[in-house]
């Protein structure tokens, strides 16, 4: 009995200690959405359970090791206890009750983060190797950065151009895969103004690590201003636009601009040069060739490189954007 009481005290102290310790560590990133609040609340319940069960097992074990160890010169065997059915039923029921409890609040929590607001702002998300693109059907805007008004639910309708990607903003907590050939949905209600990062959480090939984009949560007024500015950026310098697009879509991960060797052919001095092709012929890299290589990369395969490496950007970029990139490429020496 003395043993049991000591262990019980140890377990209580352990539980409080572990939970307090975990709390001071700062386990999670900032809470920037309503969903994050629900997730964190459930996670804290988990942390209490973890602290308790960890202390229960480890404290009992540690106490046994310290107290029931074989002392010097001792020879006897341990107590002959084969088991205790009541005890077994008891400690089958304890986890079972915990499971039922978790199942209940788990379902409630899921309901909370999936709550649908009919007035949500719809954004269509398109991902590909290795870029994010956001379309605002209400405003006719296409952007590579995600702007969201604060305190308004956003309904992300997402699909992928090639392989599976996954939309994740750690500060929003929730995550959803983008699957080619189907549309998935994610709903977030950002509740904090700030700049965060969208990260691709599902391994999607070579440059997966760099598949990020910015997400700006802004006030209602700032959002309206941004919408307006986006709708009127028709006449931008094509060279500047081309350079921006090349950076946004990570083209330079494969194509160098200084002549060095990467996965794809270099862009240095490409314009109007004579390109040897894999089928033995050659072609002159005129503007037509540059544009085709963006829209239909497998049409001409440069000697020494493989087909089917570069995805088509036909459905990603519009006519103006392709032209802008071509203009930019023409300037590279």
């Amino acid at each position: 009995m003395k043993h049991l009481i000591t262990v019980a005290i140890l377990v209580v102290l352990g539980t409080l200690g572990v939970h307090a310790g975990l709390g001071t560590l700062g386990l999670l990133p900032e809470q920037a959405s309503l969903q994050a609040i629900a997730v964190d609340k459930l996670l804290d319940v988990h942390l209490w359970l973890i602290s308790f069960l960890f202390s229960l097992i480890v404290m009992t074990l540690a106490y046994s090791l310290a107290v029931f160890r074989r002392r010097k010169g001792e020879t006897g065997e341990g107590a002959h206890m084969e088991g205790n059915t009541t005890l077994e039923i008891f400690w089958t029921m304890i986890p079972l009750l915990a499971v039922v409890f978790l199942a209940f609040i788990g379902a409630a929590s899921l309901g909370e983060i999936r709550r649908i607001d009919p007035s949500a702002l719809q954004v269509n998300v398109l991902a590909g190797q290795w870029y994010w693109q956001y379309q605002y059907p209400e405003y006719g805007i296409v952007s590579t950065e995600l702007y969201l008004p604060v305190d308004r639910q956003v309904n992300l309708q997402m699909t992928s151009n090639d392989v599976i990607h996954s939309f994740w903003v750690p500060e929003f907590r929730v995550k959803q895969d983008l699957v080619p050939g189907q549309t998935t949905e994610l709903r977030v209600t950002p509740n904090m103004v700030g700049e965060f990062r969208v990260l691709c959480a599902e391994l999607c090939g070579t440059s997966h690590a760099y598949m990020e984009s910015a997400v700006f949560v802004v006030t209602e007024e700032d959002f309206a201003a941004w919408v307006e500015s986006q709708q009127s950026t028709a006449e931008v310098d094509p060279l500047l636009l081309g350079q921006q697009l090349v950076q946004r879509y990570g083209c330079t991960a494969c194509h160098s601009i200084d002549g060095s060797q990467r996965t794809g052919p270099t862009w240095a001095g490409v314009f109007e040069s004579v390109i040897p092709l894999a089928d033995g012929t050659t072609i002159i890299a005129d503007r037509e060739y540059l544009i085709q290589s963006i829209i239909n990369p497998n049409l001409h395969i440069v000697e020494g490189y493989n087909p089917n490496v570069m995805p088509s950007f036909a459905s990603v970029l519009d006519q103006t954007q392709v032209e802008a990139i071509a203009s930019y490429l023409e300037t590279l020496k």
């Binding site: 029931f68 107590a79 400690w91 986890p95």
Partner: peptide, 27 residues
């Protein structure tokens, strides 16, 4: 979610049995 949580029950039995085994042994 429900079925996954259920795995905790038989796993718990194992842990408690180990603790029960160690309790009052000659370690």
């Amino acid at each position: 979610m429900y079925s996954t949580l259920l795995v905790a029950v038989p796993t718990g039995v194992k842990f408690f049995s180990w603790v029960g085994t160690v309790w009052r042994g000659k370690i």
